[in-house]
Design a protein around this nucleic acid. Structure first.
Lengths: 235, 235
DNA sequence: CCTGTCCTTCGTCCTGGCCCGAAGCGCGCG
DNA sequence: CGCGCGCTTCGGGCCAGGACGAAGGACAGG
């Protein structure tokens, strides 16, 4: 824990509407240019530049210059988890008018680089239930049986191991239950996207910071994932 | 999730040093009067009153008038979980100078009304490992075997069931791993305190918002809990 | 090399919010 | 009943920081 001053300084970085809009947009896991983020936040380029500079300075966002573009992304999973949690808190503490996405958003979505929503927690529970993942220092680790089944599904375990953390919990605000983060969570999500078991909305971007996080489960995905992990998602 | 405006409004409630100090102090689970909180935050009574009014208005804090005192506490577990998580984020995103508690704080502490730190995650893992708790809609539920053993330890299961949520994950910022929240988490903590397996620091209060959250594990507690849940805490 | 694009820096204005001192209410105690 | 204490409301001063327009630097393409 930190001093109240440091706590407030970090929290204040998220506490302005333009920065909040930017961070929510970045929660899709994509890297975005300063211009896109300015449009998402509904402000001018100079203001956006200043906000982004503060987010970078504060360690919440990292920047990767490429040519004349500057791509921004969330610095760590922890940042994503905190935004996710605050979004859930704001949702139930001051439920004004809901965001247009509503139910669909609770079914399946991206949380930074891994799966969240009902799908995310069902996968987490399935991994534990079937003994494919067991508690380990720092979070979870796949069991031998789990490694075999995950590899069989097409999950790149070597890539998962290269992450800073192999597997850990991330609080799911809509289900109030943990879903899987860490390298394994990332590779599981990548696998689902690669094999078209879930798909992003191919919609336009623009003012809507959340649309890019929504996922739909394909019929094929519902079948394969349901069989592998032993659940049936009610829609 | 909510609109960026609502997100920012809720987040801004935590983003000022005085309010952050108050919220951190309330994270001990105790109810505190406006005057105490003013002292903790280092500001005058009028300013404290205004801050508390905003926190109540925003749904983060509830107030219970008793005589000429007004007792304040965190409104829900969700609020506590969010503060916990932001504290951890600030700690690793901008690690300036550590708070004087340091290591001891990571061993065992209160998070609102349940146990956190190494002890909290060890209990969570132990419950799952031994099959005393299994995934259930909305979080976890004790198994028949678990009910027997928990009752045997002295946990009041009836009281646990009366809570809004029986048992769910709460992210532990220092261990980066879930510990147990919900009614069961609360009763487990109450049991440990009642039986003197852990004890609060009997220190003075005052400017230190965190001291009241620290817990020490008694020798008796280390033995009983270690035997029951199968872990050994290295100090 | 010149042009267009993307982004940042600078200068300026302005609003929102924090703080304190003084005064007003309500409750408990003597 | 009247004093004292805890807390709130009111009024005024102050400063941080957000927004914009204009100008300046970097990069790709013709």
């Amino acid at each position: 824990m930190t001093t109240p001053a440091a706590f407030a300084a970090t929290t204040a970085l998220m506490a302005e509407p333009p920065r909040a809009a930017m961070l929510q947009a970045l929660l899709s896991g994509e890297a975005m240019t300063a211009g896109e983020l300015a449009r998402v936040a509904g402000i001018g380029a100079p203001a956006a530049s200043a906000h982004l500079a503060r987010l970078v300075e504060g360690g919440l966002v990292t920047v990767h210059p490429q040519g004349r573009h500057r791509y921004h992304r969330l610095a760590t999973e922890d940042v994503a988890a905190a935004i996710e949690m605050l979004g859930g808190l704001a949702d139930r503490v001051a439920p004004p008018r809901r965001w247009p996405h509503g139910e669909a958003f609770r079914t399946a979505r991206l949380c930074y680089d891994h799966l969240a929503g009902r799908l995310g927690v069902a996968l987490h529970a399935g991994l534990v239930d079937r003994g494919w993942m067991a508690p380990a220092p720092g979070g979870w680790a796949p069991t031998p049986a789990g490694e075999a089944h995950l590899a069989d599904l097409g999950v790149d375990l070597a890539a998962a191991r290269s992450a800073r953390r192999l597997a850990c919990d991330c609080m799911d605000w809509s289900e109030r239950r943990a879903h899987l983060a860490g390298g394994l969570g990332r590779e599981l999500a990548a696998c689902c996207l690669r094999r078209h078991w879930v798909s992003r909305l191919s919609g336009q971007d623009g003012g809507d910071a959340l649309a890019r996080r929504r996922l739909t489960i394909t019929p094929e995905g519902a079948r394969r994932l349901g069989d592998a992990f032993g659940f049936r998602l009610q829609p």
